[in-house]
């Protein structure tokens, strides 16, 4: 079978896989199988981050993202965020478990000083303790809500990131559920980003039909399609093992494009089922707090 290719049109978004896939949690639906035992990647050093930031700035990068694993397991993450914020808007994707008062203070401070936005994306996958903790682990719900409260008290408005583990028809009810639990935790105007579950990693083991059902992309499907919606046409991911086409495919060795940004291959063959998710849902990894596709007929909110 012949698959379509995606070409890097411009490096809008640079991602850092800053702690590899090492994480202090091991959520049952994690798309890159992060966890306490995940050692296929190492940590990025501050020097590596700085060097690739410089390359990206020369290329005209728009935004920087830090992900993992859990990025805050890296002892130098705050320094990295400061370096990054000095040159571009910066986002960190976290499970929220390590956000202490001290760390929240530091982030509020760096946000105040920066010209650019600092986005803190905190994961929460259920609006009840039982439903969240079944996916993310025991005790996580309470601890994460406490972290969100700490951020809000300091004027930060975290983007609460939720993976849809229910039917699309229940989105409205789910958003209401998350909204009210966040308000009760002191988040007066909650920002929520809803993501589809991806046919990757442990999610594929949790619901194998996701992989079976999703077919693969073909050249015909991409005819007339806005390829800007695929991250591979505007993003790259830096790991300690080299540069990957996008954060979704970090577990796929064939998605490695080179050692460093400046010599990474400019095109990639879209031959993975996850590519279908990008095709369906558009820029799923971006920051716009979003429902993936608004239902056609909406009740008055």
């Amino acid at each position: 079978m012949k698959f379509p290719f995606a070409e890097l049109v411009h490096l809008d978004n640079l991602w850092f896989q800053v702690t590899g896939t090492l994480c202090n949690l091991s959520c049952t639906h994690c798309f890159n199988r992060s966890g306490p035992q995940a050692r296929s990647f190492g940590f990025l050093t501050l020097a590596q981050v700085q060097e690739e930031l410089e390359t990206a700035v020369r290329a005209g990068v728009k935004e920087i993202f830090f992900t993992g694993g859990e990025p805050f397991l890296h002892p130098q993450l705050p320094e990295m965020l400061e370096l990054s914020l000095a040159v571009a808007p910066t986002t960190v994707l976290t499970n929220g478990m390590l956000i202490s008062n001290r760390l929240a203070d530091r982030m509020a401070e760096m946000e105040r000083k920066a010209r650019y936005s600092l986005e803190i994306r905190v994961s929460l996958d259920g609006w009840t303790e039982a439903s969240n903790d079944a996916l993310r682990g025991r005790g996580v719900f309470k601890q994460v809500l406490a972290a969100i409260e700490r951020l809000c008290q300091r004027g930060l408005l975290p983007l609460v990131t939720v993976v849809r583990t229910w039917d699309e028809g229940e989105d409205q009810a789910a958003l209401e559920g998350f909204g009210s639990v966040l308000k009760a935790a002191g988040y007066a105007r909650p920002r929520i980003k809803l993501l589809p579950a991806l046919p990757l990693g442990r999610e594929l083991e949790r619901s194998p039909q996701a992989g079976a059902e999703s077919s693969l992309l073909s050249e015909e499907m991409l005819e007339g399609f806005d390829r800007d919606l695929l991250m591979c046409s505007n993003s790259r991911l830096v790991t300690d093992r080299g540069v990957w086409v996008c954060p979704l495919l970090v577990e796929i060795p064939a998605a490695r494009l080179g050692a460093r940004l400046q010599d990474a291959a400019p095109t990639y063959e879209l031959k993975h089922p996850a590519c279908m998710s990008c095709y369906h849902y558009g820029t799923i990894c971006g920051n716009v707090s979003a429902l993936i596709e608004g239902p056609a007929e909406l009740k008055r909110p």
Binding site: H10, D12, A56, V57, R58, A59, G60, V61, K62, E63, V87, A88, P89, R115, Y116, S117, D228
Partner: peptide, 20 residues
Amino acid sequence: RKLNEFLWESTSSDAFLEYL
């Protein structure tokens, strides 16, 4: 480059604007 791209002050890096 795009009719409906949002260019906000806090998410448009100098590097990106130079590129545009």
